[in-house]
Amino acid sequence: MKTKHLLLLFGLVALVQIIVPASMIFKNQEILKNGTVYKFKTAPVDPNNPFVGKYISLNYNLNSFPSTDSIWEGSDKIYLYLTRDQKGFAAIKSVSKVKRNDTKDDFVVAKVNYAFRGKVYFNLPFNTYYMEEGKAYDAEVAYREQQNDTITYPTYALVHIKDGQAVLSDVIIKDIPIKDYVSKK
């Protein structure tokens, strides 16, 4: 009888270990398939962490918003309600400390860095783009070089957003996905 219970418990644990990652994958695929795509302009940064692998670390030009609220504190959640600028890039329409139910605007949850002189500064949650190890260094070099010409060809990240969740799907250099751009060089 004890063996039967142990086998049942083992089966349940194995099932949970399959269901949890599968649900995370399904959630991200749902966002990629049905989320709204925004282009976020990027800024240059550092690309490697020996513990998690090869990646491009992304900074964004969109990192602050005017706010008269002076009680923002570091690591507070901030809800960023999005729109697009004249060139089609992501822009912030408004910010809030709490999720608003009075709007249908897409939003993303970020973390506050600090508030200073009428602005709140924050970190966007999609700042790491993982690459195939063999292409990561070339991608980093191409990304850094392209940051010098952000007017003609702005480098940007494609981010799918749905119900406050965001998935970074690609980084674009000179209107070409970074994986393809690196392969051409």
Rank of each mutant, 00 (worst) to 15 (best):
M1E: 13
M1N: 13
T3Y: 11
T3I: 08
K4W: 11
L6W: 09
L6I: 09
L7K: 05
G11C: 07
G11M: 05
A14F: 07
L15R: 05
L15M: 03
Q17N: 10
Q17E: 13
I18R: 01
I18S: 07
I19K: 02
I19F: 05
P21V: 00
A22E: 08
S23R: 00
F26H: 10
F26Y: 12
K27T: 11
N28E: 09
Q29P: 04
Q29M: 08
E30Y: 12
E30H: 14
E30S: 10
L32I: 09
N34H: 07
G35Y: 02
K39A: 06
K39M: 06
F40N: 01
F40Y: 00
F40M: 04
T42L: 03
A43K: 09
P44I: 02
V45H: 15
V45R: 15
D46V: 12
D46S: 14
P47L: 06
N48D: 15
N49H: 08
N49F: 04
N49V: 06
P50W: 04
P50E: 11
F51D: 14
G53Y: 03
G53M: 01
G53I: 01
K54I: 08
L58Q: 00
N61A: 08
N63F: 07
F65D: 01
F65I: 03
T68I: 10
S70A: 13
S70Q: 13
I71G: 15
I71A: 15
W72A: 05
E73S: 14
G74C: 12
S75Q: 15
S75L: 14
K77T: 09
L80F: 01
Y81A: 05
Y81T: 01
Y81W: 00
T83V: 00
T83R: 04
T83I: 03
T83F: 02
R84M: 04
Q86N: 14
Q86F: 11
F89D: 00
F89A: 00
A90W: 01
A91I: 04
A91M: 02
S94Q: 08
S96T: 05
K97Y: 08
K97G: 07
R100M: 13
D102L: 06
D102F: 07
D102R: 08
D105I: 01
V109N: 01
A110P: 04
N113C: 15
N113P: 10
A115N: 07
A115D: 06
R117G: 13
G118S: 07
K119M: 12
K119W: 12
N123C: 12
N123A: 14
E133C: 10
G134R: 09
G134C: 10
K135R: 12
K135W: 05
A136F: 06
V141C: 09
Y143W: 10
Y143P: 07
D149H: 12
T150I: 12
I151D: 14
T152K: 15
P154G: 07
V159Q: 00
K162F: 10
Q165A: 13
S169Y: 01
S169D: 08
I172V: 06
I172P: 03
I176Y: 06
I178Q: 03
K179M: 15
K179V: 13
D180Q: 12
D180H: 09
Y181W: 05
